[in-house]
Amino acid sequence: MVLTACSAPTEGGADGQGGVGFQSGDGAFTIVPADKRVEAPVLEGPTVDGGTASTADLAGKIIIVNVWGSWCAPCRAEAPELVKADAELDDDVAFLGVNTRDLDVAPARAFERSFGLTYPSIYDPNGKLLLGFGQLPPKAIPSTVVIDADGKVAARVLGEVNATTLAGIVDDVRGA
C-alpha cells in the first residue's frame, strides 16, 4: 500500500488550513527492507464522496495511500499521475487517498471531480489517521506510503510522486 500526502507550509502557513507539523516534501523516498517493516495502522473512515473506506478491506494487496489536500499545489500536479498509475498497475495494487487539512469537504469533492480520481479518499480534516505511522510518518503534503501485501509499511515518498516512480516502488516492494 502506498500512502501519499501533500505538505502545507510549516508553522503558521498562509494556506489557512493549519499547516503546523507538516513540511514541503522534496520527492525523496524510502524503501524499508522486508525484515525491518512494521505493521501499518488500519486506516478507515468516511470518504469524501459520502461512503466509507478501510485498508482492512484491501488486505492482501499492495496499498498506495496518498495524503493530499485540495489547497495543495503539488497535490494538484501529482493527481493525474496517480490516476495514471492506478490505471496502469496490476489488480494486486489498490489506491486509497487520505484528504487532510480541508476543514470543509466541499473543496475535496471538487478536487476529486476535477482530477477524476478513480479511488476513494478518506476525509480526515485533522490528520488523526496519520498518527499511526510511527516508523515512516507521512510528514509532508503530499506524501505517499506504500503498504505491502502483508500489511506492513514498505515505502514512503515525501512530496510529489509520478506514475513511473510509483511503478518502480511497487516492483521493489514485490521483489522484497
Rank of each mutant, 00 (worst) to 15 (best):
L43Q: 03
L43I: 11
G45T: 15
P46E: 07
T47N: 01
T47K: 03
V48M: 03
D49T: 14
G51R: 07
G51F: 07
T52Q: 10
A53D: 06
S54Q: 07
S54R: 05
T55V: 11
T55Q: 03
A56F: 04
L58P: 07
A59V: 15
I62K: 01
I62Q: 00
I63S: 01
I64F: 00
V65E: 04
V65G: 05
N66I: 10
V67Y: 01
G69C: 14
G69S: 15
G69Q: 14
W71C: 15
C72D: 08
A73V: 14
A73R: 13
P74V: 13
P74K: 12
R76C: 06
E78R: 06
E78P: 05
A79N: 07
E81V: 10
L82C: 09
V83H: 00
K84V: 04
E88L: 08
L89Q: 10
L89E: 06
D91P: 13
D92K: 04
V93F: 00
V93S: 00
V93T: 02
L96K: 02
V98R: 01
V98N: 03
V98C: 04
T100I: 08
R101N: 11
D102S: 15
D104L: 15
V105I: 11
R109V: 12
F111I: 11
E112Q: 15
R113W: 00
R113S: 14
R113K: 14
F115K: 13
F115R: 14
G116Q: 12
G116P: 05
G116N: 11
L117Q: 07
Y119R: 03
Y119Q: 05
Y119H: 08
I122S: 02
Y123N: 14
Y123P: 10
D124S: 07
D124H: 03
P125C: 06
P125I: 13
N126T: 11
N126W: 03
N126D: 15
N126Q: 11
G127Q: 13
L130W: 04
L131N: 06
G132S: 11
F133T: 08
F133I: 06
G134L: 13
G134R: 12
G134C: 13
G134I: 12
L136H: 04
P137E: 11
P137F: 06
A140N: 06
A140S: 14
P142V: 13
S143F: 03
V145A: 02
V145L: 02
V145G: 01
V146H: 00
D148E: 14
D148N: 12
A149P: 03
D150N: 11
D150L: 09
D150G: 07
G151T: 06
A154R: 00
A155P: 00
R156D: 01
V157G: 03
G159S: 08
V161L: 08
V161F: 04
A163T: 06
T165E: 15
